[in-house]
Design a binder for these strands. Structure first.
Lengths: 224, 224
DNA sequence: ACTAATTTTTAGATTTGTCTAAATTTTAAT
DNA sequence: ATTAAAATTTAGACAAATCTAAAAATTAGT
């Protein structure tokens, strides 16, 4: 029986980052990519890669990169589940706004108590998505892949519903608030400008021109 | 302007322990006492005492012990406030029992977000006492000294209300549950046995004989 | 007041997680 | 295919928080 039960906060952060960079399903993630994402140095990543490999959490091929093992994926999903449930809690129960939740959830996701997160889940009535529209992994490790797409890829005259964001920076989220674009809003693509790929979109009560950069950071789901 | 804003988790635990051992109000607390309480070694306490003294959080007299400065007391109250509010949250909102809350609250008390704890406070409608009957420090640093006393000190035939416990171990709390002694219960002292100082007490629906050790770990408030 | 016992501190070592700088490997370019 | 550039790893160092063992100071006993 391997003793995989002591995972430090730092280790958890690495696991989460590797998952977000696509390191489940045997895709090797480069040391540099992890270092950049975590704002640390590549040599630190190498050190941690070895330690996580020893614990059976990642597969590490020298000079090639790392990916999560089955155990690692499970651990990652558990952390992401906690993070997203806490985000829902902060928004639904404590009236935090979109852009305020991330920083606090980064801390709360490391609290070690199975009972705690299960009770939070129940209190929130088992939500399926977090405030950014990202799916919440199940207690059993199930993970719903969402059929969302970027607004920039939606065809002309299609009607879609805003379900999330790619860029989660406060700057971007504040821009959305200012322009009255919120989760669940209906968006129709009226025009696509060939010159700069900007979009003219129609919201509930107003029309709006948005740049390609904006459109390629907004996730939507097309209605059938 | 002193930079007192980086306090590590470990430092917070020392601050809290010193406070609980009576180290506010310039009473010097011995290195050994702190070490015993925290299940660490005296030499580690000395190291930390120096560090906290450098930061202006404790006053440290070599070979004599430490006590909290004004800044230290403030910091301690802030941690205790968080700890107790989280305990109320766990019991009131997530149906945790008396004996389950402490361990989780020990983790939650270190979450750094003023807004978070203020919103939790509001969600709970600004409680004054935690589930063990201990008062919750105010946001402004006010701290209600409770006029509670040990059941073992209550005179014969007086009626008192159970407001808290001194020993917070699961063993003790489970004993209380089993004998149907709960927070808010009315207790009358019927007899005091001279031989072993055990007490015969009267509860709502039953009488019960309890040892001195039990009685000296139960806090009550006498009704006027 | 003078030992003896206890408490506290110092000095040096350990672990975790990080860093810098140098060495090595891989990738890309001509 | 050889070399230049980029990425990665190694080696050695450092800070935080802890420990052990030895030295120093305080307290207590007679």
């Amino acid at each position: 029986m391997p003793k995989l039960f002591l995972v430090t906060r730092s280790e958890e952060n690495y696991i989460k980052t590797i998952f977000h960079l696509g390191g489940s399903s045997s895709t090797l993630i480069a040391t540099n990519a992890i270092a950049e994402q975590m704002e640390t140095k590549p040599s630190s990543v190498t050190d941690m890669a070895k330690k996580l490999a020893d614990k059976g959490i990642v597969y590490y091929k020298k000079y090639q990169g790392v990916c999560l093992t089955d155990i690692g994926v499970k651990k990652a999903l558990s952390i992401i589940r906690k993070h997203r449930l806490w985000e829902v809690f902060l928004v639904e129960k404590l009236d935090f706004t979109w852009d305020e939740v991330h920083e606090v959830a980064e801390q709360l996701e490391h609290i070690k108590s199975e009972k705690l997160i299960d009770r939070i889940d129940a209190l929130l009535e088992f939500p399926k998505y977090d405030p950014h529209g990202d799916p919440i992994p199940g207690k059993d490790g199930t993970f719903l892949k969402q059929d969302k797409q970027l607004l920039s890829e939606v065809p002309l005259n299609k009607v879609a519903v805003c379900v999330g964001v790619k860029d989660t920076s406060p700057t971007f989220l504040k821009f959305l608030d200012k322009n009255k674009i919120a989760l669940g809003d209906t968006i129709e693509v009226l025009e696509k400008e060939e010159f700069d790929h900007s979009l003219l979109i129609k919201l509930a009560n107003h029309e709006l021109s948005i740049s390609h950069q904006i459109a390629s950071n907004l996730y939507v789901k097309i209605n059938y």
